[in-house]
């Protein structure tokens, strides 16, 4: 009970008191979605965050000569966590969209990937000609894909899942007719044994897909935003970015995505 009271006091203090700025030597906390999203971020058996984003985050910290910490936060609570100062940077495949920019300030994009539709070969979908009509589509909750479906297929049944793994599972067991997901996630699925017998089509770019993925910071944290943007450009220019990219992907995901030259 006492703990509950303390927690209540603590939360009310956060809302009432003005925020005390962090000390200059306090580590920058990078928030990564607790749900694994391989190969962008996943936990190794040893409990260490690995993948494209944790690697890039470490490279950025080295570039900024800053102390950093990676902290895992559930995807659906990551923006509130940022605003509540539990983390300082959202660094977990968050696409830059107009809706999110109302709450969060973004750095320059650090990667961009195509949006794919994956469906069983037997469905014979023609995505280009409104072929998703009447189909049950699965997507991860809180993603740009939901908005796209709402606009172009408002009458479709859309099933939302907490993780990409659950979408894959229900696609495999036939509970959904197709899934909409990130191109890299679709590639990863196609390489698994369960992913055989499915076809993947890339959707043409749409403004709803946003302008790539950026690091999200609090809107009043302009110094951090500038520092991060500069560091992203610097690691791109000095080749560190390409090294990390090649470790995980077969394409260059620097926006706009392209094949390796």
């Amino acid at each position: 009970m006492k703990r509950l009271l303390l927690a209540l006091l603590a939360t009310s203090a956060v809302t009432v008191l003005p925020h005390i700025p962090a000390r200059a030597d306090a580590p920058i906390i990078f928030g990564i979605s607790a749900e694994p999203y391989a190969p962008f971020s996943y936990k190794s058996p040893a409990g260490v965050w690995e993948g494209f984003e944790p690697d890039l985050a470490r490279a950025l910290c080295e570039q900024m000569k800053a102390q950093c910490k990676i902290s895992e936060i559930a995807w659906d609570g990551i923006i509130p966590a940022l605003l509540a100062h539990k983390i300082d940077v959202i660094f977990t495949s968050m696409s830059i969209t107009a809706e999110r920019e109302k709450t969060v300030a973004f750095t320059i994009p650090y990667y961009d990937t195509p949006v794919d539709v994956t469906a069983p070969k037997a469905e014979g979908l023609d995505v280009a000609k409104g072929g998703l009509k009447g189909k049950v589509i699965g997507v991860q909750i809180g993603t740009i894909f939901v908005n796209w479906l709402k606009k172009y297929y408002p009458t479709n049944t859309v099933k939302t899942y907490d993780t990409q793994e659950e979408v894959n599972a229900d696609l495999t067991s036939g509970r959904i007719d197709a899934m909409l997901c990130d191109g890299i996630a679709a590639d990863a699925f196609a390489k698994t044994p369960a992913g055989q017998g499915f076809v993947t089509t890339t959707l043409p770019h749409d403004p709803l897909f946003g302008n790539g993925v950026g690091a999200g910071v609090r809107p009043d944290d302009t110094a951090l935003k500038a520092k991060l943007s500069a560091a992203i450009q610097a690691v791109r220019d000095n080749g560190t970015y390409a090294k990390i990219d090649r470790k995980y992907f077969s394409i260059d995901v620097w926006p706009p995505p392209a094949d390796f030259k």
């Binding site: 995807w75 659906d76 609570g77 923006i79 509130p80 809706e99 999110r100 709450t103 909750i141 809180g142 939901v146 908005n147 939302t160």
Partner: peptide, 14 residues
């Protein structure tokens, strides 16, 4: 609750 979760995730009003 599922509907509320979708709204929460899409609008960031938690």
């Amino acid at each position: 609750l599922g509907a509320a979760d979708i709204v929460r995730a899409q609008t960031f009003h938690v």
